[in-house]
Computed example of a mutant assay.
Amino acid sequence: MLSSFARFARVVAIAVAAVFATVELVEARAGRGGSFGSRGVRTFSAPPPTNTAPRPTQPIERSMTQPGQTTPGVAAQRPGAAAQAAPQRRFGTGFFAGLLGAGLLGALFGAGFFGGLGGLGSILGMLLQIALIGGLVWLALSFFRRRQQPAFAGAGAGPANGAARSSLPGLSGLGGGQAGGMTGASMAAGGGDGSLALGAEDFDAFEQALHDVQKAFSDEDLAALRRLTTPEMVSFLAEDLADNARAGIVNRLADTKLLQGDLAEAWREGSDDYATVAMRFSLIDYKADRTTGAVVEGSTSEPVEATELWTFRRSRGGPWLLSAIQQA
Rank of each mutant, 00 (worst) to 15 (best):
A6I: 12
F8W: 11
V11P: 03
A15N: 07
A18V: 15
V19A: 08
F20H: 03
T22Q: 07
T22Y: 07
A30T: 00
S38K: 01
S38G: 05
G40D: 09
V41S: 09
V41K: 09
F44H: 04
S45Y: 10
T50I: 14
A53T: 05
R55G: 08
P56S: 04
P59K: 02
E61H: 13
R62K: 12
G73T: 13
R78V: 15
A82R: 05
A82K: 04
A83G: 08
R89K: 12
F91C: 06
T93Y: 00
T93S: 10
F95E: 11
A97L: 14
L104D: 02
G106C: 04
G106F: 02
F114T: 14
G115C: 06
L117C: 04
L117Q: 09
L120G: 14
G125N: 10
L128P: 01
A131G: 15
A131L: 14
W138I: 11
L141R: 04
S142E: 10
P150A: 02
F152W: 10
F152Q: 12
G158D: 11
A160N: 08
A163T: 01
A164N: 12
R165I: 09
L168T: 14
G177L: 00
Q178G: 03
G181M: 11
M182T: 02
A185L: 01
A185T: 05
A188Q: 09
A189V: 00
G190T: 08
G192I: 07
L196K: 07
A200S: 13
A205I: 01
F206D: 01
L210D: 15
K215T: 03
L222C: 02
L222Q: 10
L225V: 11
R227S: 15
L228K: 03
S235Y: 06
F236N: 08
L237M: 12
E239S: 12
E239Y: 10
L241K: 06
A242D: 11
A247W: 05
G248E: 00
G248M: 00
V250F: 09
R252I: 15
L253E: 14
D255T: 02
T256G: 09
L258C: 13
D262C: 01
G270I: 00
D272E: 15
T276H: 07
A278C: 05
S282A: 09
D285K: 07
R290T: 10
E297D: 14
G298S: 02
T300E: 12
S301Q: 08
E302C: 00
E305H: 01
T307Q: 11
R313Q: 04
R316K: 08
P319E: 15
L322E: 00
A324W: 04
Q327N: 12
A328R: 10
